Simulated assay, not measured.
Amino acid sequence: MELTAQQFKTIEHLLPIPRGNVKISNLQVLNAILYVAEHGCKWRGLPKRFGRWHSIYMRANRWAKQGVLDRVFLALQENDVINIQVDHVSLDSTVVKVHPDGTGAFKKNGSQSIGKSRGGWTTKIHMVAASHNSAVTFSLSPGQVGDAPEGRKLLKTLENCGWEGTKVIMDKAYEGDETRQLVFDLGMEPVVPPKSNRLSVWEYDREIYKKRNEVERLFRRLKGFRRIFSRFDKLDVIFKFFIHFAL
């Protein structure tokens, strides 16, 4: 799988002008990043057809620290290249195992959302999804962190989006009073089943709740990229770079 020249034209103006080794175009770099993301190989393992691996790595690293793909992701949403449906969104999280190569960085080097849970060293990806192939926003946390507190942080970023009345589909991990009240405060409607030990239960739209599978399907597609299925990157800024790229 590679990006075509036609697809590249959509985002070409959003990428920095190449500097240094200009023999390698931005399209070549993007396809090299796609190869690494899809196959989970090391930068040194890039086929020679992409060019010198170190030059590609340096440009990708520079883009990650400058937030280049973050801006590309937002620009695609704003231009409706990614068609986001806002009649409902789904909130959920997934756990990613951290490879031993992804641990051990100094804290001063940057944020590292890596923690120890029952499954060992893990990272959680928290996401608000608009459909099975459209993400609205996401964040990272250490694997042992609860879903609800991080979910509330993501929901707060939806304030002033003009999505009043939008249904927010969540599983029972988010059925706490604080999370549900936040959804109401944002002018949205929580669709979440109550836990069995709730003394006062509530009704929820069971038909809409069936659409919670969309965020699960999005996670499945995201983990089709081996560089995301297992975390090899020590710093969040690089791991987020690959997630933004895949999305």
Score class of each variant (00 low, 15 high):
M58A: 06
S196G: 08
A148G: 11
L186I: 13
R152F: 07
G40F: 14
G110L: 03
R227L: 09
E216R: 13
F73D: 03
F138M: 04
L199R: 15
H126S: 07
V191I: 15
V29N: 04
D92W: 15
H54L: 07
E189W: 05
G40S: 13
V72E: 06
A5H: 09
V128M: 14
Q77N: 05
K97E: 06
A105E: 07
E189L: 11
E178V: 12
V36E: 06
K124H: 07
Q77Y: 11
R221P: 08
A75Y: 05
Q28E: 12
D101G: 02
T122Y: 03
M1E: 05
E203V: 00
A246H: 10
F8W: 08
G51K: 05
S117M: 09
D233Y: 02
R212P: 02
L158C: 04
S117D: 13
T179M: 15
V237L: 01
R52K: 14
T94N: 05
W63K: 06
K124N: 10
P193F: 11
D233G: 00
F242P: 00
F73S: 01
T103A: 10
V36Y: 08
V136E: 07
K107S: 10
N79E: 04
H39I: 01
P194A: 13
D92L: 15
P47N: 05
L46I: 03
I228G: 04
D185C: 12
D177I: 15
E214C: 02
E12F: 04
P193Q: 13
V96G: 01
P190T: 05
H244C: 10
N133C: 08
G162H: 12
P47L: 01
Q112P: 10
M170I: 13
E164A: 08
V183Y: 15
I125F: 03
F225L: 02
I11A: 07
Q66D: 11
V29P: 09
R19Q: 11
L222Y: 01
D171M: 14
L74H: 08
K124S: 04
A148K: 12
K48T: 10
N79P: 00
K156H: 13
S230E: 07
T123P: 02
D101L: 14
G187T: 05
W63C: 01
W53F: 14
R71K: 15
N160Y: 12
R221K: 14
G102V: 08
Q112Y: 03
P47A: 00
E159C: 05
V36K: 03
G110A: 07
W43F: 12
N31S: 04
M1S: 10
E175W: 11
A105T: 03
R62M: 05
D101K: 15
I24C: 09
W43P: 00
P142R: 02
